[in-house]
Computed example of a mutant assay.
Amino acid sequence: MKKLNVILILLLLCVGTTVIAQKKIKSFNSKDYALFGDKFKVTTIYSKNEMLKKYKSLKKGDTITVQFQSNIKAVCKKKGCWMKMELAGDEESFVKFKDYGFFVPLNADNSQAIVNGKAFVDIESVESLRHYAKDGGKSSAEIAKITKPEVTFSFLADGVYIKK
């Protein structure tokens, strides 16, 4: 009898976990999104809060393959070759695109996006930070204030869905 109860409980846990996972996937409808880069199957999407926790657990040199969904805070205003996505609090993820192989619309700011790729922690040089600030439309005064390298929550995306 105890074995039967244990089996039933395990079965219910498995079914419950599957239903939760399916709810996350069912909330995604590709017709509501424009695809940039490689097409990918949406599986487990992390929120901006969950993604920040993932980043905080990484050390320089660590890389994880994930999907996360958040708002786009900024896009490169020259080509659309990078974007910054919101994380919890005032944190952000700096997203570049694999092999410089695709770009996102210059007006994608404030859009909802799902990115697929590799998350890692990086250190950006002053030169790179100034370059990105210039491409992001920052003033000369703001660019001049960049004087030291920064630890960044980086992301190399092979595909991006942006909500239409």
Results as ranks from 00 to 15, higher is better:
75 V>P: 00
75 V>D: 00
75 V>Q: 01
76 C>Q: 10
76 C>N: 08
76 C>M: 09
76 C>D: 15
76 C>R: 13
76 C>L: 13
76 C>T: 11
77 K>P: 08
77 K>L: 14
77 K>R: 15
77 K>Y: 10
77 K>D: 12
77 K>N: 13
77 K>I: 06
78 K>H: 14
79 K>R: 12
79 K>C: 03
79 K>Y: 03
79 K>T: 15
80 G>Q: 08
80 G>A: 05
80 G>T: 03
80 G>V: 03
80 G>M: 07
80 G>L: 03
80 G>N: 09
81 C>M: 14
81 C>N: 11
81 C>P: 05
81 C>K: 15
81 C>T: 11
81 C>G: 09
82 W>V: 02
82 W>Q: 02
82 W>S: 01
82 W>L: 03
82 W>F: 15
83 M>E: 10
83 M>R: 03
83 M>A: 07
83 M>Y: 04
83 M>F: 06
84 K>G: 14
85 M>D: 08
85 M>K: 01
85 M>G: 04
86 E>T: 10
86 E>K: 12
86 E>V: 13
86 E>L: 12
87 L>I: 05
87 L>D: 02
87 L>W: 04
87 L>T: 05
87 L>M: 12
87 L>K: 03
88 A>I: 08
88 A>C: 07
88 A>F: 09
88 A>K: 09
89 G>W: 04
89 G>E: 04
89 G>H: 02
89 G>D: 09
89 G>Q: 03
89 G>P: 05
89 G>V: 06
90 D>I: 04
90 D>C: 01
90 D>F: 05
90 D>W: 05
90 D>E: 13
91 E>Y: 13
91 E>I: 06
92 E>H: 11
92 E>K: 10
92 E>R: 07
92 E>S: 11
92 E>G: 02
93 S>E: 00
93 S>A: 15
93 S>R: 00
93 S>D: 00
93 S>W: 01
93 S>C: 04
94 F>Y: 12
94 F>E: 04
94 F>Q: 09
94 F>S: 14
94 F>R: 11
94 F>N: 11
94 F>H: 15
95 V>T: 14
95 V>W: 02
95 V>N: 09
95 V>F: 05
96 K>L: 14
96 K>I: 10
96 K>E: 04
96 K>V: 11
96 K>M: 10
97 F>V: 05
97 F>C: 01
97 F>T: 06
97 F>S: 01
98 K>E: 12
98 K>T: 12
98 K>R: 13
98 K>G: 06
98 K>V: 11
99 D>L: 04
99 D>M: 02
99 D>W: 00
99 D>A: 11
99 D>K: 06
99 D>T: 05
100 Y>A: 10
100 Y>S: 08
100 Y>T: 04
101 G>F: 08
101 G>V: 14
101 G>L: 10
101 G>N: 14
102 F>A: 02
102 F>W: 02
102 F>M: 06
103 F>V: 11
103 F>R: 09
103 F>C: 13
103 F>T: 15
104 V>H: 00
